[in-house]
Design a protein around this nucleic acid. Structure first.
Lengths: 144, 144
DNA sequence: CCACGGGCGTTGTATTATGCAACTAGCCAG
DNA sequence: CTGGCTAGTTGCATAATACAACGCCCGTGG
């Protein structure tokens, strides 16, 4: 019965509903690390040596926003900037030990919450859901 | 190869990434109607006569935030409040004709964007994705 | 070698969303 | 009627964000 239109509507509605909650949930789980901070930190962990510009592009945030987030994370001692020796304009971002640890802490809390929430999901469904999200996010992340 | 843990991690990561973008995308598509406004309006259309408290609970927003959003939407002429005759504390929220129209406009833009983005998805995948999101959001929306 | 255009990042400024706390008004049970 | 509860509003503070102007460094073309 769900038409293509209806599926699309549901997807946008539910994704949006999720978005509304994510921040609050993050704030509850790890007040020390906002959702944005957590996400950026997480990204940096995966992409050791990424640039601020990369983050800005990926998350559709202004470079100034990223700059401030990075400054805050550095002040907290969670990341360090290493100027690219080959191009002094560029800062390569790396997690510090403290950052890795902090991220792990938050991740544990988040994972716990998500696991609880997804406890009764079959593994196959989880995989498919994850795959859909990846696929969704991989398409046209720009704002053309 | 994706373990349960990994799927869960991916889900949170990708949902979060989506969340980061949704607002910016909404701002681009319909600057008149923020993502929150759109979502609330959309909710009100489905649940004619819902209360502010319902919205606050569903979207995990403070009642004051909802109150202000509602005030703004009313000022724009998109909704009207009808005091519940049975309980004068309660305001039942209804879309006006203008609100319905505005919402439809925004919905068209959004649907267009989403459709473009999801153009190459098979209908079955869309349905499953939508179902997963619904299922996800339906579980434990509270913050216990 | 030097100047210019462009990319990367920072800082100043303003806006906006949001939460918390205090408050008002209306309901209901004792 | 009074106390306690619920719905919603408002004052206040904060945090996230965008935009614009700027500084720094790169490479290229004269």
């Amino acid at each position: 019965m769900p038409s293509r239109d209806q599926s699309v509507t549901t997807i946008q509605r539910e994704l949006t509903a999720f978005a509304r909650r994510a921040r609050a949930a993050a704030a509850r789980m790890h007040p020390e690390l906002s959702l944005v901070s957590f996400t950026l930190l997480s990204h940096m962990e995966d992409q050791q040596g990424c640039r601020a510009t990369d983050l800005a592009a990926y998350y559709m945030l202004d470079k100034s926003t990223i700059s401030r987030q990075i400054a805050a994370l550095e002040k907290l001692g969670f990341i360090e900037r290493r100027t690219d020796p080959a191009d002094h304009r560029i800062q390569l971002l790396h997690l510090t030990a403290a950052g890795t640890e902090k991220l792990a802490e938050a991740a544990v809390l988040r994972r716990h919450a998500f696991h609880e929430r997804l406890a009764d999901w079959e593994e196959g469904d989880l995989e498919r859901f994850a795959a859909y999200l990846l696929r969704y996010n991989s398409t046209a992340p720009d704002g053309s």
